[in-house]
Design a protein around this nucleic acid. Structure first.
Lengths: 203, 203
DNA sequence: AGGTTATTTTCCACATCGGTACAAAAATAA
DNA sequence: TTATTTTTGTACCGATGTGGAAAATAACCT
């Protein structure tokens, strides 16, 4: 019998570029310039492919963005899940702020958060994308809220917090940290602010 | 004799539109769609003037945005000043969050904050505007920090807060509230979050 | 080798972008 | 009246935007 290889080559001319690394390049461009701010010229240059090649491999710009967004989310999904599974609400809050706030040291990626600055506003033509990113933000907030609802049952929330408002508060703060980061506020400054948020965390 | 009116008319055809209300219309368009998301077609339609008229009266798009931004800031300047002059840090924080967070009921204006969503990211061509808005955000943070430094001298800050991080924290949270608002999160929800932030404010 | 299939390149289509030249229109000044 | 000044609408500019058609190319399979 013939061994079922991991991937069997499909007939036809093999592509000359690595689809995944091209997609990653596109993701970084969208991340930095936003959906409408990223032109096809920016994208093709970073992806090192020609325009029709991009078109053939990824479809139109909107589809490409969705795939890039999916990759972005996938790259961070593990960290999110880990954060949500931390034992205490305080630990979750801190992990969330450091993560979503985009407060990290890696200089290889753009500052800020794809989901925040990818299409916060824009022309009517990109309304669908704007709504999609807003939905993702809302879903994240809901995940937080559900986790905090569990925490409330299991032993209470800090201070006088309720799950919903606490989730909204953390989501907003995280988005705001991303805004500041995107605007050039250095990570140390933002980290220092988060430090003191945690230091003043209610019992 | 003819009465010397407050302003004597200059020769030439008088303009047929009100410059100030046209500028206000432009401000609302920039606020809603952002700098690059707002096309000249959007602007001229809302301002109810033709493209050459816009050019003669306001210069290019970038100059128009600056003037619209100036109007936006002017409309809120009084509220900012009032907030900064409140007696306690807690009162300042609450006023700031309600104001800058864009958590207000007026349905006549777009949601979110001009300074946040006007040009958070975008093409390289609009980098100047992006930086300008980021500067305005930073200046606001500095104003807060200076006020908190004064408060520290006069009697201490709540919890273990220091002026710099506290200012950064509030700025970020306000920007984040604006992001959430821009994404369609209803004002009541955001106000509820702010309510609990204040309820858990450290002594 | 021949045939098939997919990719790549060259060139192009068409809308929209910000920005303007021009002359008619409407007011004041002489 | 005539001249001057300023605004206004029409029509247009080059550049860039996204999106594609069609032919050339390069692998695979028999």
């Amino acid at each position: 019998m013939l061994s079922t290889l991991p991937q069997k080559r499909s007939p036809g001319r093999p592509r000359e570029f690595d689809r995944d690394s091209a997609l990653k390049a596109a993701m970084l461009v969208f991340w930095r310039y936003g959906y409408e701010g990223a032109s096809l010229a920016d994208l093709t240059e970073a992806m090192e492919i020609s325009k029709p090649t991009l078109y053939a491999a990824f479809g139109d710009k909107e589809t490409l963005l969705r795939e890039a967004l999916h990759m972005y989310l996938g790259l961070h999904a593990e960290a999110y899940t880990t954060a949500l599974n931390l034992p205490t609400v305080k630990q979750i809050a801190e992990a969330w702020l450091r993560l979503v706030g985009g407060v990290r040291e890696e200089a290889a990626v753009p500052s800020g958060c794809f989901v925040v600055q990818g299409a916060l506003v824009g022309s009517k033509a990109s309304r669908v994308i704007q709504d999609e990113l807003a939905s993702i933000r809302n879903e994240a907030t809901q995940k937080l809220e559900q986790r905090f609802a569990r925490a409330k049952q299991e032993g209470g929330l800090p201070g006088t917090w309720e799950p919903g408002p606490l989730a909204q508060y953390l989501s907003a703060l995280a988005s705001g940290l991303a805004v500041q980061s995107s605007g050039g506020v250095p990570p140390e400054v933002l980290n220092q602010a988060v430090d003191q948020v945690m230091a003043n965390w209610p019992k």
